[in-house]
Design a binder for these strands. Sequence first.
DNA 1: ACATATCATTTAACATGTTAAGTATGCCTC
DNA 2: GAGGCATACTTAACATGTTAAATGATATGT
Lengths: 148, 148
Amino acid sequence: MSELRNIKHSLPMLLLQAREAAMAKFRPMLRSHGLTEQQWRVIRVLASVDTMDASQLAKTSVLLAPSLTRILQHLEKQDFIRRDADATDQRKSVLCLTAKGQQIYAVVGPDSEALYKDIEAKFSTEKLNTLYQLLSELNIALNMPFED
Amino acid sequence: MSELRNIKHSLPMLLLQAREAAMAKFRPMLRSHGLTEQQWRVIRVLASVDTMDASQLAKTSVLLAPSLTRILQHLEKQDFIRRDADATDQRKSVLCLTAKGQQIYAVVGPDSEALYKDIEAKFSTEKLNTLYQLLSELNIALNMPFED
DNA sequence: ACATATCATTTAACATGTTAAGTATGCCTC
DNA sequence: GAGGCATACTTAACATGTTAAATGATATGT
């Protein structure tokens, strides 16, 4: 009935579908551990760094600040993370995993890794590497300040 | 502090970041027309087909059924869409754009197309085509029933 | 026809996404 | 050192994401 760009050639739609396909098995796995996808992202980032302030954590885990606020409240209540005041800037919260947080990371990590391996088994390593490269380049290109 | 897969090599994370980058300018544009990203997806799909039932609409616009239910209620209240009963199956709703729906599609469409052109200007057509191809292949590969 | 399973959609409940506004702290300059 | 601006969150309000369960209609087997 209409022209315009076919939805199959819409980059955001293809990215969305691809992500859904890639995540499909992750969510049930995480749910079986009582975690959401986003909570796991936060735990995973904190597991890789010892300590991080909330702003950086939001960027690294690709969450907006209001979402992160709620997720941290949740994780703190469950004793997976701890927040300390920054010594030199009272505005900042410094987050880290508790022992319990490190423990669940150790439990969920292998399940997560296994699912990544499944993906790699279904799609050639070469194509996957090309895809990584292109997505990285796209991220850089689109974040260029031209025409902003 | 820990090993495991670097978050920069996580396919779902790269796809999420790429999508965020690609969508960044779309949301403010759509908002200026009073639409959300998801509402626009529904309108756009309906504009391309005359008529579609809700299940197909959900698949095509990459929305889960409960989300689509709410979005359709919203769009119906604003008189952008109309729902009719399916003649042969009372369970189905058949959706279509109203005149007002077609009108907003005609208004927003060009703005949307302009933003796609911006993306294409920042990333070579060749790379974009490779990316489309790889994403399509990934979608197919990941939806294979092996190991399900 | 009847029981049963399946399908299409909706509702419910809770978590997150998104934008705007609020609060508190730090920085900077006059 | 008071005002003004920026930064680091937090809150609020509404929309969507996600899973489970409910509802109603249809297909299927006996």
